[in-house]
Design a protein around this nucleic acid. Sequence first.
DNA 1: CACTTTCAGCGTACATCGTACGGGATTATT
DNA 2: AATAATCCCGTACGATGTACGCTGAAAGTG
Lengths: 257, 257
Amino acid sequence: MSTESTGLGEPDRTLHLLWRERLGEPVGSRGPKQRASVDAVVDAAIAIADEEGMEALSMRRIAERLGMKPMSVYTYVPGKAELIDLMVDRSAGEQPLPEPAGSLRERLEQIARLTWNEFLRHPWLLSIDTSRPPLGPNVSDRWEWSLRMIEGLGLSDLDMDQIITLVTGFVSGPARAYIDAERLHRTTDETDEEWWERNAPILDQIMEPERYPISGRVGQAAGEEYGAPSDPERAFEFGLARVIDGIEAYVASASSP
Amino acid sequence: MSTESTGLGEPDRTLHLLWRERLGEPVGSRGPKQRASVDAVVDAAIAIADEEGMEALSMRRIAERLGMKPMSVYTYVPGKAELIDLMVDRSAGEQPLPEPAGSLRERLEQIARLTWNEFLRHPWLLSIDTSRPPLGPNVSDRWEWSLRMIEGLGLSDLDMDQIITLVTGFVSGPARAYIDAERLHRTTDETDEEWWERNAPILDQIMEPERYPISGRVGQAAGEEYGAPSDPERAFEFGLARVIDGIEAYVASASSP
DNA sequence: CACTTTCAGCGTACATCGTACGGGATTATT
DNA sequence: AATAATCCCGTACGATGTACGCTGAAAGTG
């Protein structure tokens, strides 16, 4: 139930693993051939996390998937903490990063949608504490790309940093809601209506309606409009539009005087 | 109360625990006196999570803190999952919810700062999947209060819902960064400069500067301005101002025509 | 060829976790 | 006094991450 974190492993060891492709492999190793590879381990881990969630990810399950015994995984990866860093960086490299083009609004939307897509592909990213992201090649490339999208607008370096942080940070909220709703539908056979019919009697008995007039009204309106308790995709579009409006206004006022 | 209802499963149990105070206790229990209480368990759990983080929270540690044996905790709480729901709802009730007053901007700020404070008091809230919040009394009160803060502006019910979601959702990003930075300072004896001096040589060797011109420039500018790798409190203020600007513009356009 | 060095793979073991089960101790009701 | 309910806890099970050290395969060296 508790969340995993990035950046917990040995920095030295982790960095060398993250940048292994651009560093060149150590040549002339003596022992037996490796049966697998770091990439195979990371792929297996991501596959498990995608299919069954982060709580199902264990070193033993990874080994099983690769046809090895548990301890053999440690031949490729120092531990679980470092493996998670590798998973995050690998996920960050899946989508192409197109050359900057279009209006500011279009560019910020592109950044946000890229992040959105990544969360939908790999829901487990949301159960990971990525506050201190691993400084791997793909994460770094993506950061550079994001900044390049808003380069040349007359913004200070600090403003650029804060704007990108705001846009990408915003996405996690609605993405969480989306993933959660989807998982609920997949896990249980219950429809939203059935769930509501099962819980409503208890809530009716417990929550005095006169204490929650606005929640009640808003909740009902939302339910009728969405045909569900929530519509995260819509929340994403709504929030994104507001955030970009705010940023546009700021850029206009910060670059003109 | 002792009905082993086949129709109602887990949510039933959790809801009754959450609303236990307003439901009234079952009177005339036969067995031995209880040595502790649900509140004592929840308090102990929150204390542990506050002091040592979510990963240190275990049923055994809670028992230890209460002077009982591990399995006795299950007398008060069905399991760890339910306990976490109780922790979240209890945390939501710590701060007073003042009557709505002031401009829209001031009100939205108040909502955001309340959320911000809550995350700083209880950092473990950030390592919890709160996408489907427990429908407890404090969480419900807070939701109602938030909606009441923007009632009467001519907004549709859906817009109200989405605006509150946006404002509170935004906070988690910078709060995560803040907590993480603070934890890093407390955990290690290293200053930011020492950390950088230790990692810079590796990064210099690995990351070709010509591939990351903007990141390099922005990172350096930020470092010099903040005297640290980041300044989450500033990011919070910056982002909040943008988000509210965007919402204000929307409210003006949505309520006038 | 024989011999040495190195390292992949894995068997075993340990501490820690959540919690199912069932039994003794304690109390209020009958 | 008998009965029924209920707290507390001893024991145990399966799962987790991973430390340690062995075995045998492959490469380098003579």
